[in-house]
């Protein structure tokens, strides 16, 4: 099976500091990968490094068949990396629709498809970006990534700080994205059960290294590992 993403011996961080200390993993086309771990182990840094926001010291990032580790951020996006950052980063001065239009690219999701996935956004499409709830902002951030024609979607803690009922709705939408498209998805999450039920494979990070890898179902069944690496009560 072909790879959507292949990371080899990736060492990266901020300035001289090393946060990711030699990561290697492979994500097949159409695959889903959960990236788990306690706070501060490098999950967000991993996604930021894939987008080119950090200082890479060593290693290769192969997207499809081309190495992209030295490619400018906007070209990585154009090549098909869609990024939904933890901070969401909605443009407050633009309306919901303008937030989508500014990122739209041929071959990406249409606005109608995004509104179909997130009906709340359609209702609020004339509202400015700073008048949205946290959940709506997250939906908009996901929608904005989808209209940019991604082949690999990077989601950084999409459910953080959201009410349980909103988390449920968002998880449903993410599952629809996963099932209805040929996207590959990397999901960084603190909610272990949500991440493991969403993704086929999982890796667990600790201090910048991969300390566990395998099928999500295997990790889900392994209470001892979950407790030891993630602090989840068994």
């Amino acid at each position: 099976m072909s790879s959507a993403l292949r990371v080899e011996d990736l060492v990266a961080g901020y300035g001289a500091t090393v946060v990711l200390d030699g990561l290697s993993f492979d994500l097949p086309t159409g695959g889903t990968l959960a990236v788990l771990g306690r706070n501060g182990v490098g999950k967000t840094t991993l996604l930021a490094t894939l987008m080119g926001f950090t200082n890479r010291h060593r290693g290769v990032i192969r997207f499809g068949d081309r190495p992209i580790e030295s490619v400018a951020t906007h070209r990585r996006n154009r090549a098909g990396l869609g990024y939904v950052p933890q901070e969401r980063e909605i443009f407050p001065s633009l309306s919901v629709e303008e937030n989508l239009l500014v990122a739209r690219r041929g071959g990406g999701w249409t606005l109608a498809a995004v509104y179909d996935l997130f009906p709340a956004l359609k209702e609020r499409r004339r509202n400015s970006g700073n008048r949205l709830s946290g959940g709506e902002q997250q939906m908009l951030a996901v929608g904005r990534a989808l209209v940019g024609a991604p082949r690999l979607l990077l989601l950084d803690e999409p459910t953080e700080g959201l009410a349980p009922i909103v988390v449920e709705a968002l998880a449903e939408a993410l599952a629809r994205i996963r099932d209805q498209s040929v996207l590959s998805i990397i999901l960084v999450e603190q909610r272990v059960d949500l991440a493991l039920s969403f993704a086929r494979d999982a890796i667990v990070l600790d201090r910048g290294r991969i300390v566990w890898r395998g099928a999500s179902t295997a990790l889900d069944a392994d209470d001892d590992t979950k407790h030891r690496l993630l602090g989840v009560a068994g």
């Binding site: 070209r75 001065s93 239009l101 500014v102």
Partner: peptide, 22 residues
């Protein structure tokens, strides 16, 4: 759209790069 992208760049150049804006 060019003007709107300037608006976005002022607010977050990093985000604009991540959605493919040179």
């Amino acid at each position: 759209p060019f003007g709107r992208s300037l608006d976005g760049i002022r607010q977050s150049p990093r985000r604009m790069r991540a959605i493919g804006t040179p």
